[in-house]
Design a protein around this nucleic acid. Structure first.
Lengths: 217, 217, 217, 217
DNA sequence: CATGAATGAGGATTCATTCAT
DNA sequence: GATGAATGAATCCTCATTCAT
């Protein structure tokens, strides 16, 4: 117990401890949710894994929902960061290689987090507006558009809207499938090939004669 | 009291009641699971919704798992039937229209079943081999291949493998997204356009010069 | 449907059917109780084993308790009959052989009914006066006294009271132990020897000097 | 707040509370099992009787079985201690008095515990090896042999084997009978006389001429 | 009388959350 | 702030018993 503290400094250690605690808890929660799913995970398990008492857990998170909400937020951020960095690194590669490395990074992350995504799906928040799927989606679209912009041979803006939409969903789905399918881990390369093929196809301008301008309401 | 009964017909009424009961229960379960997800749904809720006692429910289904298993099976069957029928009906339409109507039917079904799929995802069966994801997937692949075969302009067999993989996942993901996204219902036409574009792109043979033969292990 | 019946005869077939039904049910109940114990046995199991509907069972027995009560009664009767017959048969044998054969018969019966007795113990009747332990005990005492009477060398009446009490309990306990102890079945001969020794010892007049006339309260 | 604490003593209060709670629960369970038998007793009843919540009960005992297992263990220990102490106290008394006081203590304990033994009988543990009937029996045999050793006039070792067997079962049965028979409490003295007579008889060497050496396989 | 579908009270057990220390 | 014992509502499921057919 220090005798004397510089003014304004007193709360620093507390905040540090606080932040550390929060991170420890979240890491424990991430593991437990990943191992058991949302409903099957118990807050006591999480506290135990974090090496703290259940009471302390509730000091930092008001309830079970808040835990998974925060984890999801973090996961989204990590995913965006990962892709951003993969895009940066792939700057000079030929298109197929670039796409392949970006998607590959994405896939690896999902394979390693496996069941955590199951927990995200399982959790149906009472207050829908609390989740940040929206924000995540927006940012992801921005990222993809940025990539398209950086490659002269690819379509941009309005012309690429469909492609972006399809790519996002294709990737999402494959990630999903990879996660729920035990065998996916072994097929990594093949899956990657398929996805990359699909993405490149989407980015190819459709031959004019094949698809007449679609008129619809 | 009928004077004469065809043999084996005597037990019909019982069987009818039985079948009716089973269907009532399944419909109730489908609703409750769709509303609350798997774990959050309670068997008592389901019985109440079905208008029967909890005891009766357990007369027909040995446990909670068996309910969702059966619902999933039914859902898969309905989906396959729906697509088969949409494919049949679309026989003479130009490719884009055909694909659009098939996917459209699929999408509509998912939009109406909304959160039920969340429940499917959530449920992790104790005995994995009991679920029929495998069967479903196989049949779906067969269906898609059949469609490709029926259209001379489309690739077939080995050449289409990637396309089929991507299409399946693309569709699955969009359905998934549609299901979890409230606004999807309003964007039906746009979403459809995007998906159809994506599918058609995948079915286009990749220009040779764009993608050199990928060598990997 | 017979047109004409002799008066008073109408109910005979019914009574016969009735009696048969009752016996079938009791036999089934005996088996089920023996296999699972009282609480763990279910009336539906019993009905099924009896090859009748649960409704029919309740036509003949008002509740689960009444089943075990009746079985216990029957068991007591059979036990008494068995011992009576063993005593009759052993008429001319030397004392030790006689006792041995009587006790042996008793033991065999218990070994074969094994867990049924567990069910008797387990069942705590709501209305104590309903059970017939009292009657059973009285009759058994009578039987033993009869045996003592038939053997000039043995004590009788008041002098044998202690012996009878001890014998009854000794036998009962050994039966009990035999029933709950899996190994008992293999030790049949040894157990028999011990019990017979004990009984003969009790029937020996105590040496006067060893036990002074007990004065108490 | 004590200025100085012996090391390791800090946690005492917690452990005390814990021990107290466990004892409170066990006492409640003992009562409820004694009143209703094993199956009919409910864990909620026990918690209520103990004046705690059902949740607390399960904090200390993982399931219903563990409750009766522990109670049985305690009961066996108490019984052995009681008899040991009764044997010690009876050191200088004449044989009959000594036996009488030992058995008397035993009987009193059983009379007071009444139906609890029914619950023991009723409970058929899933994992047989968990119960300690075996240990109890061994220790009891040891105790009795010790008593025989301490009295020069009594048989020992192999010669007493039958006697010990018979005595144990006799006592057990009488205790059992006493427990299930409401009137037993009133007949205490008579029952005691009978049992003591029986035991002494068993300890009398059988007259040689009465029982020829039994030959059996 | 026979049937067996339907009932629903009741039981063991779990787990998010609180609060006295 | 930290702790973890205590809480008790809520869950899945069973089974004795009834009653319409």
């Amino acid at each position: 117990m220090p005798l004397q503290l510089a003014p304004g400094q007193r709360r620093k250690p507390k905040q540090l401890r606080s932040r550390l605690m929060v991170e420890t808890i979240l890491e424990a929660a991430r593991q437990i949710f990943a191992e058991h799913g949302f409903e099957a995970a118990t807050t006591n398990q999480i506290a135990e894994r974090a090496g703290i008492s259940i009471g302390s857990l509730y000091q930092y998170f008001p309830n079970k929902d808040s835990l998974i909400l925060e984890i999801q937020r973090m996961h989204h951020d990590e995913l965006l960061a990962l892709i951003r960095s993969a895009m940066d690194k792939s700057g000079k590669l030929p298109l197929r290689e670039a796409v392949r490395s970006i998607i590959g990074a994405n896939l690896d992350m999902h394979l390693s987090e496996a069941r955590l995504h199951g927990a995200f799906e399982e959790w149906i928040p009472a207050q829908t507006q609390l989740v940040d799927r929206e924000r995540f989606q927006q940012e992801m679209v921005g990222l993809i558009n940025g990539f398209l912009d950086s490659r002269p041979e690819l379509p941009k803006g309005q012309a690429a809207k469909s492609a972006v939409f399809v790519i996002m969903n294709l990737v999402k789905s494959v990630m999903h499938a990879a996660v729920s399918d035990a065998k996916a881990a072994e097929n990594r390369e093949q899956i990657l090939d398929h996805v990359v093929d699909g993405i490149l196809a989407c980015l190819q301008p459709l031959p004019e004669n094949a698809t007449p301008p679609r008129p619809h309401h």
